[in-house]
Design a protein around this nucleic acid. Structure first.
Lengths: 197, 197, 197, 197
DNA sequence: AAGTAATCGAGACGGTACGTCATGTCTTAGC
DNA sequence: GCTAAGACATGACGTACCGTCTCGATTACTT
């Protein structure tokens, strides 16, 4: 079929890392996760789907968790940027976007899968914190601090506790398969950030 | 002990289910999970540890998830009873106990493992809801309703959203390996249940 | 269906051996062997097919080989009697019947299966000789001896070698799935028994 | 030996089939068969003994019967060559060697095991004919034909019937655990091949 | 007539082997 | 030095039988 292409995908390489292979792996991993769930996400399946040799994966990623982390980090910045403006409304909007991200976006699936996998393996938990949770939390803490300094909000709890209280319910709903109840985000913001009125 | 045990270990019953084997499996699963993590929780390892044939496990449990569910359900009632008294203080105490349960109790580990595993497999999610999350949530909703009727509390959100908002942050902290911040439970209760005072 | 018979097959037992069960086992074994081959001949399959408990089989037969031996011994006398008359023609007829028996008779299948199984297990070989091959060979040797005494034949070899030379090719053909070539029996008799001219 | 083996046992090759593993499997199978009988000849035991992974066996052989066939075919040519010279004496010598082969040679054990196993499973029978019995019989038929053409012998039966009559008794003796009676081979040759003298 | 004993069906149990799948390491051969 | 391809040792998967066992019911021989 398709006009008998003799070299079906032959142009790959030489001495430098093959960027096409890298992207093919990331996309294959993402696709498999979304289409068939984490159970189908094996190194062999990724290699098969990406049209890549297993060894090519092992050369560049120490585990499939790192593949997911690569996808997650690259895509989260696009799909769910932390807002610049330190306003109460900005924070509320970010949380609403986060709820959508985590319940509907394919990349949100990756986040949930990593939270789950971190629970199963200490090594994963470690890397997950280093590469994703830590940096993200730093950005969020900064947003909160600037909003507080600006008098936009006046949180009833410390920064980390506040963020746990705001994002925890959203993540929990997503993990248990439920949608985030209407009004939850607004009420949480109202109750915990105490708008400067 | 030592004394005079007349039957050395010959009594595996015969035609009826062997209760000793059942308990050995549940304990082996729990022990392996706590000692070596979910990764070490294979059916073969459970069978080895319990001194039981693999087939005996497959005869009674369709998957290791159901083993964990059995443990979780049996033990949660003992370790984390939902309080009878519908008071604001009772609810606060329950949430504090829940925080301890989920961060320190071995059975809490089982709960976290199941939340994680449910994320990886739809079948697990289904069973987890049917057998644990659903019934438990019903009890909690009942507690909330009775406390509301008694005028003890006056929640700002619907029952499910309230429970998500209260337990979500605790579960999220446990999942991300953190301890539950001091004051979090009290502040959440104060902010969301609006004590009748 | 079928008029709701409350006791479907209840009349079995008491304190004496249940003859119906014994026959059911023998027939089940034979049927399974013929219908699905030796591979399907497991104790569990026999028990299932005979509608009998596994223990009932183990109580009366030490192995499935003994079941086959029971069938073989009981049925061979009916299907393949060693002739009384010590004539050359009688011997020839017996060999022709033996060829039919071993290539077409269900009981012949049992014989072949036991020859094969004896090759796989020394215990089987032992019992097979004791209970079948030995006694049968004795009868055949006797037939040969009487025919020789009567001057009907004059074998070129000793009795056992003669019998091996006569039956060996037939068994070999049956084992290799071939039919016994036309004229083989007659030529063997002519060449080895040297009719009294 | 001893001397300077530079690679201790690191050379399992990589992308090409590992010849050492192939031979280890063939020898392990042969050894197990001779030492512990067909009952001990399980894939797992072969793998253990050969120091090879089970999957390596399944990759190259569809069943243990094919392993035995490989051994049998490779070794029969060395241990029991069909003679070139189409003489009566050559045929007699071949049959005597065959009797020794089948009663004393370890490879003869493999042949008997395959005859037996073919009786238990149609698939085995099929492959056994295709790969061993058929080709061997063709060689033997050719030997017979050339000897007949040369006027060395003058068989009383067709080629296949003659071969069945000559080899059948030998195989039968081996299968029933007996030794081949003295004089049997010579008498069979004399009686069936009718030397041209 | 009550007690004893052997039988039967059912089926749970600790095992062993099955054949399949994914792991992570390795070697080869092509560019 | 990268790549695709894939063989390899390892070990878990879920299934099928093995032979032993214990049940609860059904009969038949004892006393």
């Amino acid at each position: 079929m398709a006009a008998a292409n003799p070299q079906p995908r032959r142009a790959h390489s030489g001495s430098r890392r093959d960027e096409a292979a890298r992207l093919a792996v990331l996309h294959a991993a993402d696709d498999l996760l979304v289409e068939h769930g984490f159970g189908a996400l094996t190194i062999e399946a990724i290699a098969r789907r990406a049209g890549v040799a297993k060894q090519t994966i092992y050369r560049w990623w120490p585990s499939k968790v790192e593949i997911l982390l690569d996808t997650l980090i690259e895509d989260t910045e696009k799909r769910l940027p932390v807002p610049d403006k330190p306003t109460a409304e900005g924070i509320r909007g970010y949380l609403r976007a986060f709820a959508r991200f985590v319940t509907r976006d394919p990349v949100g699936q990756v986040l949930l899968a990593l939270i789950a996998e971190a629970q199963h393996s200490p090594g994963t938990a470690e890397r997950f914190h280093q590469r994703y949770l830590g940096p993200r939390r730093a950005l969020e803490r900064d947003l909160l601090a600037r909003a507080t300094d600006a008098g936009e909000i006046s949180p009833r709890l410390g920064p980390d506790a506040t963020l746990d209280a705001l994002t925890g319910p959203i993540v929990y709903c997503a993990l248990t398969g439920a949608s985030v109840p209407r009004g939850l985000v607004d009420t949480l913001c109202a109750a915990l950030l105490v708008p400067a009125s």
